[in-house]
């Protein structure tokens, strides 16, 4: 019989892993299609980091769950209602480089602060994964932040385009901070930490870059998409999964 705490720990890991994987899946769409060759390389690095993070957290979940679960089971054999990523990362980039950088930045700042806390987790696997991930996320935030400044303070067109991306993605940032009973249980055990507590710091972090980029931050909105924690997504996720999972789903007995 699995304890409630272990159940919560699995959910917690899957949320982080799903978010990184879906984000990586989007970013890797750029490999071979970037605005300059150096960015093909940089974005591939980011995608590799995020896949690495998802594999780490999936593997830990599989270890706790047992029952023959593997990282690939979680990634390729679960349906759209079972994925726990935030809605922001599944949004299509449509080859808009500014949109990709904005997503990477907004989510990255959140991940940075989350992993910084998780490094103090009483669960050693979690704190270890966090310590590894934070180095990568630090680079992601810096890379995306630099681009946001360049694009915001570049040409008139780039300013307008990156502003549009910010306006479009801003409503999705509320969901980043959502928590539920899973978090509560882990927080009370010193395994995870209250995300509300770093919300102000996150706001300061992103505002600082937007000021440098000469981008006014949108008014706090009434509309804020949500649903990731319950597996209720936008229509985009179904297509992303259909593509990503097609081989293991078509050939269920195959080993690759």
């Amino acid at each position: 019989m699995m304890t409630d705490l272990n159940k919560a720990l699995i959910d917690f890991c899957l949320r982080i892993a799903d978010n990184s994987l879906i984000h990586a899946q989007r970013i890797s769409e750029w490999t071979g299609h970037g605005p300059i060759l150096e960015e093909d390389i940089a974005m591939s690095n980011v995608a590799l980091d995020l896949i690495g993070q998802s594999r780490g957290f999936y593997t830990y979940a599989a270890q706790i769950e047992g029952d023959g679960k593997t990282e690939d089971f979680y990634a390729f054999r679960r349906g759209e209602r079972e994925f726990r990523n935030k809605l922001m990362v599944e949004q299509p980039d449509n080859k808009d480089f500014g949109f990709t950088m904005m997503k990477l930045f907004l989510n990255g700042c959140f991940d940075y602060l989350m992993f910084r806390d998780l490094m103090k987790s009483t669960d050693e696997t979690i704190s270890g994964l966090a310590a590894k991930s934070i180095k990568e996320v630090t680079y992601h935030v810096r890379h995306a932040g630099d681009w946001i400044v360049r694009l915001g303070d570049g040409t008139e067109e780039s300013h307008q385009r990156i502003q549009n991306s910010l306006n479009e993605l801003w409503p999705y940032t509320n969901e980043l901070f959502e928590q539920d009973s899973v978090d509560a249980l882990l927080i009370s055990n010193g395994i995870a930490f209250d995300k509300e507590k770093f919300r102000d710091e996150w706001t300061k972090m992103v505002h600082e870059i937007f000021a440098k980029a000469t981008l006014p931050v949108p008014e706090n909105n009434t509309y804020s998409p949500t649903g990731g924690l319950k597996g209720i997504h936008s229509e985009h996720l179904g297509y992303l999964l259909a593509e990503m999972q097609y081989l293991p789903r078509t050939y269920p007995d195959a080993v690759w």
Binding site: E29, L48, I51, E243, M244, W256
Partner: peptide, 21 residues
């Protein structure tokens, strides 16, 4: 890349294509 059949294969393929860049 988007259809690689396992996470390990996906990572290897991205790294490979990245090398070509």
């Amino acid at each position: 890349i988007s259809r690689a059949p396992s996470l390990a294969r996906k990572a290897i393929l991205i790294a490979k294509v990245q090398d070509e860049a």
